[in-house]
Nucleic acid binder design. Structure first.
Length: 234
DNA sequence: GCGACAG
DNA sequence: ATCTTGTCGC
């Protein structure tokens, strides 16, 4: 597991962090469809915390998009680089996630993030931020609607409803299982919203959450437990 | 001003 | 995110 520290010049205040988002937002690419679902690699990234010990662990798990088989995985440990502030989640997760992505032995392909992309107060959530920093196609799949509104999608798996900021569609509520609470999909970087939803559905054949997030979540939790055990052992 | 608020 | 046992159901 690779170790990272907070990058020099990392925002120290909420005001600085918002300024970074406002500056980087112009670099987001929204006019590319992105890779076709079911081809190449799809990579899930997730993070687990131990605020008590000031430890954060990120995991990246690469799947074969056609079979959903695990192709490669990596983890990285770091220090908590920012407190949790709604709208500024990226500053808490990104340094360690970047390290995990860099530690992968192969190309990540499409990156699936836990959280939002365009569905964000300043249209620059975690997935957008990670996309701009890496140049990779990214999408966000969140478990909650944040502050946005939506009408309940129809009951069958595959049904969608717009996720709205006022009248602007910033993402989509996507039903991945019949009659089960939808997930909330938004575009990160270099992927269309239609394609982001198609990928998410293809990645969730059996459970509400995409296999990418499930795998990354399980891996970073296990790695965090092991890291905490190592710190306690001495 | 107050509360809500991805993880 | 994280704290946490059993339990109902396929």
């Amino acid at each position: 597991m690779t170790t990272v520290r907070t990058p020099a010049g990392w925002p120290a205040t909420e005001e600085e962090a918002r300024a970074v988002q406002d500056a980087l937002r112009a670099k987001v690419v929204l006019d590319e469809p992105g890779p076709p679902p079911g081809t190449g690699h799809v990579t899930g990234v997730d993070v687990a915390y131990d605020d008590e010990r000031d430890v954060v662990v990120a995991a990246a798990v690469v799947l074969d998009a056609a079979t959903l088989a695990v192709v490669a995985e990596s983890t990285a440990v770091g220090r908590v680089s920012f407190p949790y502030v709604p709208g500024l989640l990226a500053f808490r997760e990104i340094p360690t996630v970047l390290a995990a992505l860099k530690a992968l032995p192969c190309a990540p392909g499409l990156v699936v993030c836990d959280g939002y992309g365009r569905a964000h107060p300043r249209r620059f959530g975690l997935a957008s931020h990670l996309g701009v920093l890496t140049g990779l196609p990214t999408i966000g799949v969140a478990k909650n609607p944040f502050t946005f509104t939506y009408d309940e999608p129809a009951a069958p798996r595959g049904s969608t409803a717009p996720l709205l900021a006022g009248t602007e569609e910033v993402g989509r509520a996507l039903r991945t299982r019949d009659a089960v609470k939808p997930v909330f999909v938004s575009v990160g970087h270099r992927v269309s919203l239609d394609n982001a939803c198609a990928h998410t559905l293809a990645l969730a054949p059996a459970y509400r959450l995409p296999e990418t997030t499930r795998r990354a979540d399980a891996l970073c939790r296990r790695a965090l437990r092991e890291a905490a055990r190592a710190l306690t052992a001495d």
